[in-house]
């Protein structure tokens, strides 16, 4: 029932840390290397690790395919929506300065960048998951002898 016990225990310890690190990379992207793209890939890597260890069916229960499709579209909408919001507020497309009245600290820029990167995170994570599901779902599980 429990082959690869060490792998299971270690990955259960690691996966939450990987997800938290991914979120750190996203929300700290203004101050340190990283951003939405890297964060999306890191979070996707955490789920893929889960799928490799516990099987792709368990992963599809944790991150369902409808969620993947939804988040992929939502990311693009969030990015575009931020641009449209700045348009509605009377500035150019993706000109974030109007998003917040505090121009002295450029708070609007910070909000805009975080929102836009959140869109990138959502789309990149979902597309990575979609590609993984599409390819890995076609193969039978890894045979015992090949671990």
């Amino acid at each position: 029932m429990t082959p690869h016990l060490v792998l299971r225990v270690v990955s259960k310890l690691l996966i939450p840390l990987i997800v938290v690190f991914g979120l750190y990379v996203h929300f700290h992207g203004d101050y340190s290397p990283g951003g939405g793209f890297q964060a999306g890939v890191i979070v996707a890597a955490a789920v893929i690790l889960y799928a490799l260890i516990f099987g792709i069916d368990s992963a599809k229960r944790a991150v369902p395919t409808w969620f993947v499709k939804f988040m992929a579209a939502l990311g693009v909408l969030l990015f575009g929506g931020t641009g449209v919001a700045s348009l509605i507020l009377g500035a150019n497309f993706l000109d974030y300065d109007v998003l917040h009245p505090d121009l002295a600290h450029h708070t609007g820029q910070h909000i805009g960048i975080i929102l836009v990167e959140l869109g990138v995170l959502s789309t990149v994570f979902s597309v990575m998951m979609a590609i993984f599901y599409a390819f890995a779902g076609r193969a039978p599980d890894i045979p015992e002898g090949e671990w």
């Binding site: 992207g29 203004d30 101050y31 951003g35 450029h106 820029q109 805009g112 960048i113 836009v116």
Partner: peptide, 12 residues
């Protein structure tokens, strides 16, 4: 007004 110029160029 963010320290990471790469993010500023990329996102803004």
């Amino acid at each position: 007004a963010i320290p990471n110029v790469v993010t500023a160029v990329l996102a803004s």
